[in-house]
Design a binder for these strands. Structure first.
Lengths: 141, 141
DNA sequence: TATTGTTATACTCTATAACTATA
DNA sequence: TATAGTTATAGAGTATAACAATA
């Protein structure tokens, strides 16, 4: 059984999750790109770090991170400061404005999804309540 | 209840879905872009349809779908055929090569997820089976 | 010499606007 | 006139290669 059910579910679930995530990313939010938002969120979550570390975290190449940070800096969402001992390195940090943007962005995305959830039947809600926990378990495994 | 449960589920579900999708995107796959793969999968799942219908399904603009289908056609993964009664419309269909690619692609990309699914209890699998359908419904709403 | 980050350049993906063919 | 699809063109995002500054 597992040899049949496992792969089929994996395929269907993967497509559904990817499709929904694509849709949620399209939902009205800030005007930042996924990488820009993710970079900002990573900086908030893990604290100030060098551009090289950030690039590795977000799995983009260094030149791409240079541009992302340049853009976020232009918008006042991050600051760039020199490394204390190594003059080659640059440390990026989230500004208060950056934190505010992250917060309001999260609020808006939640609203978009919440609007759709109220259209569902109670038993569908129950399924998603349980699914959210399971998906999280999978993502963290 | 709904006024509390709705938003909480929205937030939890959004985070879980986005986190899982980020993990899955890092898995190795074919050289097709997300939209190209999704389009091919949609054609296989729903059967032959016009480019306009496909564009609506994948939520891209018609010119983008024209290019996606042109590319898939060049690769021999889909065919384009004239509509029986309406000379303006074009019907796209998956070729056997397209099905093969989907199959091998899924096999590779689903490995990561499938490995984690077999760790789950049968009732958790059942929840995800249902959740996949509901997530899809939300994504298409 | 090696490393960190930047600049120059090109490619992919997607969009809007203008166009062609058909209804 | 309206609709389906295509072509022309532009913009965003990311990559590789070459370069500058520092270790």
């Amino acid at each position: 059984m597992e040899s049949v059910t496992g792969p089929r579910l994996a395929s269907g679930l993967r497509i559904s999750v990817m499709r929904l995530s694509r849709r949620m990313r399209q939902a009205p939010s800030s005007s930042l790109s996924p990488t820009q938002i993710a970079t900002l969120a990573t900086l908030e979550r893990l604290g100030p770090m060098t551009l090289g570390e950030l690039a590795a975290q977000e799995r983009v190449q260094p030149p791409s991170m240079t541009r992302v940070i340049m853009h976020l800096d232009d918008l006042g969402l991050v600051t760039r400061s020199p490394h204390k001992t190594d003059g080659r390195q640059v440390i990026a940090s989230v500004t208060p404005a950056g934190r505010e943007l992250l917060e309001s962005d999260r609020r808006r995305r939640d609203e978009w999804l919440a609007e759709r959830l109220v259209e569902l039947e109670p038993d569908e809600i129950a399924v998603l309540e349980r699914a959210a926990v399971i998906l999280d378990k999978i993502a963290n495994s």
